[in-house]
Design a binder for these strands. Structure first.
Length: 296
DNA sequence: TCATGTCAAGGCGTC
DNA sequence: GACGCCTTGACATGA
């Protein structure tokens, strides 16, 4: 079991997801931003290794506008060495990596143009993972997409369009249950029909529950991951921030809730991405607890 | 300097 | 049909 946090480290004092507005796009500005993002990413990876945090979600903003038509140079060629160096660092430490393109990636969209743009965005993530030298245990995490008033057709479209994905992407896709539309049951159904792997989110399941218990479904889902090819199952973990809107992620880990979660899933080995706002601070708290409980 | 608005991209729920 | 919200960080703008 590995514990991770997404994209940003609040302690290191830099950001690996620096951006700028489209209207101020220039090649020079983009190069400068990518260089700064990669430099920061390396610092964050160092931090993680020193602190034994062995799961990390890499930001989608490493290369701003990577899949946008405005992109007019081969960033892959310019930054090859930097990607390779950071990739070696990660692989040497045996750190698990994921990435999570945002809500605009909809491979089941009704509009073919949206599907096309989504595939381009996914291709960027796949190319980035190839440059890092990651195998297929590093995952690109997406949601099923929109329902468009007909979930059955929406799922069918996902399965159909999944076939159009380039290999660098297809072999790395993990599909997550969301908090409103597609439950774990839906995700499992889709994954059975594709090469995608089910990625379970406990908080989304609490808000948008499946028919069976989370623990049962986690077991079932974990069986769809081939340990050799995909690694053990990845999960997202969060809890409700008290006093905030339903669905708001906690500011800091509620260690009692986490203990309970770990206890009821103890028969399964899985990696946990903590979607908690204070990032590595909660990851360190979770690691401390897991060591005491002899779970890692 | 600080607070607020805006950002490439979409969908959904509410009115 | 318009609008706010999702989730969210970072930049841009304006007081």
């Amino acid at each position: 079991m590995k514990i991770g946090y997404p994209c940003k480290n609040v302690s290191v004092g830099c950001s690996s997801s620096k951006r700028f507005n489209l209207k101020s796009y220039t090649k020079a500005k983009t190069e400068e931003t990518v260089r700064a993002n990669l430099e920061c990413l390396e610092n964050v990876i160092d931090f993680n290794i020193k602190n034994n945090i062995m799961f990390f979600r890499i930001s989608s903003d490493i290369v701003p506008f990577a899949s946008h038509p405005v992109m007019d140079f081969k960033w892959q060629r310019i930054f090859r060495n930097e990607f390779e160096r950071i990739g070696r660092l990660i692989k040497k430490a045996k750190m698990r990596i994921s990435t999570h393109p945002d809500q605009f990636v909809l491979i089941n969209a009704l509009d073919g143009n949206i599907v096309e743009r989504s595939i381009k965005e996914l291709l960027y993530h796949g190319e980035m993972f190839d440059l890092f030298g990651f195998k297929t245990d590093a995952k690109i995490q997406i949601h099923v997409g929109g329902a468009y008033g007909d979930k059955k057709s929406a799922k069918e479209r996902f399965v159909k369009n999944f076939k159009k994905l380039p290999l660098s992407v297809k072999k790395r896709i993990a599909v997550e249950n969301d908090d409103r539309l597609f439950t774990i049951d839906d995700v499992l159904e889709i994954c059975e029909k594709t090469d995608a792997k089910p990625l379970l989110d406990n908080f989304h399941d609490a808000l948008n529950p499946s028919k069976q218990s989370f623990e049962k479904l986690l077991k079932k889902a974990s069986e769809q991951w081939s340990e050799k090819r995909d690694g053990i199952i990845m999960t997202d973990y969060s809890s409700q921030e008290m006093g905030k809107r339903k669905g708001s992620h906690a500011e800091s880990i509620d260690i009692n809730d986490f203990k309970h979660y770990i206890d009821r899933t103890k028969k399964i080995d899985f990696d946990i991405m903590l979607e908690i706002k204070d990032k590595e601070k909660s990851a360190l708290k979770a690691l401390k607890y897991l060591k005491e409980a002899k779970r890692i």
